[in-house]
Nucleic acid binder design. Structure first.
Length: 371
DNA sequence: AAGCCGGGGCA
DNA sequence: TGCCCAGGCTT
């Protein structure tokens, strides 16, 4: 028997016999929800995406509801999930489908993949799960399962590798039920043929698994590029003026695009960052032509956040500004209540959750008591 | 083709 | 600490 036929049969047999993962989007027929779940799940573990999916479905039961929602509100719901451009594309595509296509979701692979935020994987997923079309998904699970079973060491992060695995996936695909097959291979990769400590002992495909035979299961899939991690150092100024706080929206293509942040200074070296003190704050205020007097209440201990491609250190300087409410820079001044409606990076939420706003509130109370 | 985009879980 | 996760976009 052809190896790919063997693979398909054994995989489907496993899928029928084993209790699969129970996930809220499984067996979903509403294409809107299928699309929504797939966008959420991009580079995101199913367990992590779960609660976000539930939130979105509850808040936006239809593509029209999502399309009509303010972008800011959608971002707040997405907060903490990461890769925030997905959120912008989600909203944009919802509007395209609701308003331009009058709510009718594209129903061919070629039209689906044209949607913003939809690439080869997501298009295949929507085409198969939503419309039963014969397109094989290739995600991290599929790269792993196929590379091991067929013993392929072509780098999966190369153009050639992507092409090769997509072709192989199409060969293996069960065209009589593409959705079930796609579901099966991803569940198999997530529960048996795992990245760490794969459960080869209980694998019913191991007798023809090339990597198992050769003892190279842990060497596959092969990647050629190594992840570089950039270190960055920030000093955030949490400034309070009569019960309002200065924030700004992050623009550009840097990390945390379209999220809010506190005005800040980024340092090029750890040394410069650590040397920053009250006089640095004064310099920073002067350079921004802030003429009002201020008091530095405290400087937080540094918080570290590890991202997949950056290691970010940040501390927060708590500043109380005196005098009249005037327009300062391009900052927006928000009350504590308004702040809670804005999407922030996790790093900044860590500051907020550490009781920063309460500290300002307590100080006001103290001042009033004295006067 | 290469670089970049978050946050969480795991060994 | 390094790698991975139901990837895709930009340059």
């Amino acid at each position: 028997m052809d190896r790919s036929n063997y693979f398909r049969q054994k995989l489907l047999l496993w899928h029928h016999s084993v209790n699969k993962r129970q996930l809220p989007w499984k067996g979903e027929k509403d294409v809107y929800r299928i699309w929504l779940s797939e966008i959420i799940l991009q580079q995101t573990r199913a367990e992590q995406g779960w609660k976000y999916y539930e939130r979105f479905v509850n808040q936006y039961p239809t593509v029209q509801k999502l399309a009509k929602a303010p972008l800011e509100e959608v971002y707040k719901l997405w907060e903490g999930l990461g890769y925030y451009n997905r959120c912008r594309n989600l909203h944009s595509t919802a509007q395209f489908i609701a308003f331009e296509l009058k709510g009718k979701f594209p129903d061919t692979f070629e039209t689906i993949i044209e949607l913003k935020g939809v690439g080869p994987y997501t298009a295949a997923a929507i085409a198969s799960f939503g419309f039963g079309l014969p397109h094989a998904v290739v995600d991290g699970n599929v790269f792993r399962v196929l590379s091991r079973f067929f013993g392929i060491d072509t780098p999966i992060d190369s153009t050639e590798g992507k092409k090769q695995f997509q072709q192989l996936a199409n060969v293996c695909l069960d065209t009589s039920d593409p959705a079930a097959y796609n579901q099966a291979i991803m569940d198999f990769g997530a529960t048996v043929c795992k990245p760490d400590l794969p459960d080869c002992r209980n694998c019913n495909l191991k007798t023809k698994c090339v990597a198992f035979e050769k003892g190279v299961v842990n060497e596959l899939p092969f990647k050629e590029k190594k992840n570089k991690i950039r270190k960055r150092w920030f000093r955030f100024y949490i400034m309070e003026l009569k019960g309002t706080f200065a924030v700004q929206k992050r623009t550009g293509k840097d990390v945390w695009g379209n999220l809010y942040e506190f005005p800040n200074e980024e340092y090029k070296t750890e040394k410069e960052w650590k040397l920053a003190n009250t006089s640095s704050t004064e310099t920073w205020f002067k350079s921004r032509k802030i003429k009002q007097s201020f008091t530095v209440l405290s400087t937080s201990k540094p918080i570290k956040q590890q991202l997949s491609h950056q290691l970010i250190y940040g501390n927060a300087v708590l500043v109380q500004i005196k005098g009249k409410q005037t327009i300062l820079q391009d900052w927006e001044w928000k009350t504590a209540t308004q702040l809670k409606q804005l999407p922030f990076p996790k790093l900044l939420n860590d500051f907020l959750n550490a009781g920063v706003l309460e500290l300002f509130a307590a100080r006001h109370t103290t001042v009033k008591q004295k006067t």
